[in-house]
Amino acid sequence: MRVGEVIGKVILAKCHPSVSGGTWLVVAPLTVAGLKGDPLGREEPLVVYDELGAGLGARIGFSEGGEAANPFAPNHKPLDAYNACILDTIEVE
């Protein structure tokens, strides 16, 4: 699982029926420097499927690859990244 910040939302006119009901977020994965507040601590943004309702600026925990489809087993969905949690606070030492 990785931590990222929601920087936008994807709007679709039509999507695959198996993913209706969720939203698509544009998320910038954060490095340790990004978790500490450094604006240069962001990696290349990616699109993450969300059913939890994360908003702009939220920090989320997301999974990628095969793990992204696991929450939907046995009815797998065509996902590359899935929002697993919305984080309230992050402490980095």
Rank of each mutant, 00 (worst) to 15 (best):
V19G: 00
V27H: 01
V48C: 07
Y82M: 11
W24Q: 14
D38F: 05
L56K: 15
C15A: 14
N83P: 06
C85T: 14
P17A: 01
Y82R: 06
E43S: 07
K9V: 14
I60N: 13
W24D: 14
L35G: 08
I86F: 02
V47Q: 00
P17E: 05
V19T: 03
G37I: 03
I60T: 08
P45W: 03
F72N: 05
E67H: 12
I7R: 07
E93G: 13
A28W: 10
L46D: 09
P39N: 06
A68I: 09
G53M: 03
L87R: 10
H76I: 13
A68S: 04
V92S: 04
V3N: 10
I11Y: 12
V48A: 07
V32W: 12
K36C: 05
G8T: 08
D38L: 07
D88A: 13
G66C: 08
P29T: 07
V47I: 07
S63P: 02
T31S: 10
G37Y: 04
L25N: 01
N83D: 07
G34C: 01
V6A: 01
P45K: 02
G55W: 12
D88P: 07
E44V: 12
H16Q: 02
E51W: 11
T31C: 06
G8M: 04
L40M: 12
C85M: 11
E43V: 05
R42S: 02
V47R: 00
C15W: 11
A13S: 13
A81T: 01
E43T: 11
A69L: 03
A73L: 12
T89E: 15
P39M: 10
L35C: 04
H16F: 03
N70A: 14
E64P: 13
V32S: 12
A13T: 14
V26A: 05
V27Y: 01
A33V: 03
G55C: 11
R42W: 04
G66F: 08
G66Y: 09
V3Y: 06
H16M: 07
L79P: 00
S18A: 13
E43Y: 05
A54F: 10
S18L: 15
K9H: 14
E51S: 03
C15H: 11
V10R: 11
F62W: 10
V27D: 00
P39V: 09
P74C: 00
P39S: 04
V3S: 07
A13D: 10
D38W: 05
V32D: 11
G61K: 09
G22F: 15
A68R: 01
A58L: 13
V48G: 05
S63A: 10
P39W: 14
W24E: 15
E51P: 03
G4K: 01
I60Y: 13
A58G: 11
V6T: 01
K9I: 13
I90Q: 06
D80W: 01
P39T: 08
V3H: 06
S20H: 15
V19E: 00
M1Q: 09
A58D: 15
G4S: 00
L30P: 04
V6I: 09
G41V: 08
V26P: 02
D38H: 03
E5F: 09
L52C: 03
A73T: 09
K14L: 15
H76K: 10
R59L: 00
L46K: 06
R42D: 04
N83V: 08
